[in-house]
Design a protein around this nucleic acid. Sequence first.
RNA 1: GACUCCAUAGCUCAGCUGGAUAGAGCAGCCGCCUUCUAAGCGGCAGGUCGGAGGUUCGAAUCCUCCUGGGGUCGCCA
Length: 614
Amino acid sequence: MNIGACLTQPRNCDSARCHSLETHIRAHSPMNLFELFQNRIAACVSDLGQSVDLPKGVDTGRITVEPPRDPSHGDLATNAAMVLAKDASMPPRVFAEKLVPRLQALEGVSSVEIAGPGFINLRLDSSLFHGVLRSILTDREAYGRSTKGKRKKVNVEFVSANPTGPMHVGHGRGAVFGDALASLLDFAGYDVTREYYINDAGAQVDILARSAFLRYREALGENIGAIPEGLYPGDYLVPVGEALSKQYGSSLLKQSEKEWLPIVRQAAIDAMMDRIREDLAALAINHDVFFSERSLSEGGNRDEIAALIDELKSRDLVFQGRLPPPKGAPVEDWEDREQTLFCATQYGDDVDRPLLKSDGTYTYFAADIAYHRSKYLRGFKTMIDVWGADHGGYIKRMTAAVKAATDGLGDLDVKICQLVRLLRNGEQVRMSKRSGDFITLREVVDEVGRDAVRFMILYRKNDATLDFDLGKVIEQSKDNPVFYVQYAHARCASVARQAQTSINPGSDEFKHADLKRLTDESERGVMHRLAQYPRLIESAALAHEPHRIAFYLHEVASDFHALWNRGKDHPDLRFVIENDRDLSIARLALVDSVRIVLASGLSVLGVSAPDEMR
RNA sequence: GACUCCAUAGCUCAGCUGGAUAGAGCAGCCGCCUUCUAAGCGGCAGGUCGGAGGUUCGAAUCCUCCUGGGGUCGCCA
């Protein structure tokens, strides 16, 4: 690509047709001011390379363009000179001086200055930010949507709670996080599949079946007494037992466990999964795929796990060997024996991992490898798993296994959600596991609402522990970020309602608003903030960090509340100025833009954007 | 013992994959309601980014070693 020839024009743009930058912005929406300038600055650097002694093919990828922390530094700052100084073998500031004239020649740049160790600060024409506003008002809910993902298939596996009981708040965190991450990736242009891995094989679900069978006998009138140690005591299995008694009468009693267990097990799993799906639906979470672990070895005419192990064997990644005894707390029934191991150490794990139990059945790990290989075979090169904190020690072996099972072509990113501490007005809410009557996720959602649960979970990094206070999250005050952000949206809507009774803007009037009338510093500040939204979406999606959206929304809300209040101190800054229709329209267009971005971000997080909150 | 996550204002936390003088919110102090929702806003004060080295133009951020906490540690899922 001949970048130099298109120096003052945006890249990939026919210069004859693209005569103004604002036109360009509107023609290439969704637009990202920062990306645009990153490309243009990179082009300037490449062009400079023809006259200055720059190595061929210099890496311009490290150039960043970001808003300076201090607004007095300008609108955009780039580190181009500092990053490339070494390649150019000259001090950053000297390189910067050579670059400045070219940057100054860029359309829309009003001034350029070198600062500090070699930052280049750009001041932009207001028209650029007006262009941003127009693209918001035109694209509406599509503003910020990115094509960066190039429709690449991404599999987000989350929740995957064992179908042995109701979900607790910890599951809820993974559920909300995974769902928001999936939405974020979708918004950033990926082809996302939400997936749930049902652990319906192994010992746990057999225990579930025995527990349910007990409830079945109870439903038939038997006095079962206390639930024996080792079985699930929760009364959520009572309805399962009753359903079984209705369907089968007493006929199961005559069968051996070998006969009734598969029947009861499947019924119990189905009942648990129905309930889990309901609980997820209460949080507006819907998976695209529910993948059964059991189906890997029993489902069709082929044992996927055996196939996987065979394949790994053929590539010399499986061997018979012995493992050193586990460190830490001693394991009572440890016996040194030769077993079937996957060479996880070849892929960065600390020890090799067993694929078969001593009874000859597959380990959970073996099934999990086959499962991840299945994802890969279904076209997902990028996989994201969302796990609870207690599975942190499992990451190395799974990423190792994915590398091995996909021959290095698949990529797994495991996101760990740390523990949730449930509080009520500062007092910790104890969850007694023994009795089985712990506080379920559903109870929490029913008490404080979906929005509060979702936003508070997302208002924290996934790998930091979360204090969730049932009292605080429903407070209607600025201390509660859920309310604070939603209220900003409601306020925008309220302003629009009020305006209908005064200047009553036409349906298409905002798009043609005279945005040059927005001259106040706070108005300019809001425009800058809104301009960052597309960039934020892309970086949050790339980092797999939806919490950045929540914090950004809090900042937008803060900007807006401040703007709103300025109208109190300065009546000339009120949104609606009775005798100045053009100014009012411009300001209402800004308010509408704020509302659109708030609604968009909240939508990505799966939180509602109410028009009023009385 | 090994691996892993964390340590930032009195408290709860951000810090945009290495950028400029480290930021919010609570709590504290001082202000702002005849006004588009005061359910809000402005200001002041508050810091050896756990400690010590290292990498480079530049480190809260990356590497090593300490200190203090959470989690995990064949055949559970």
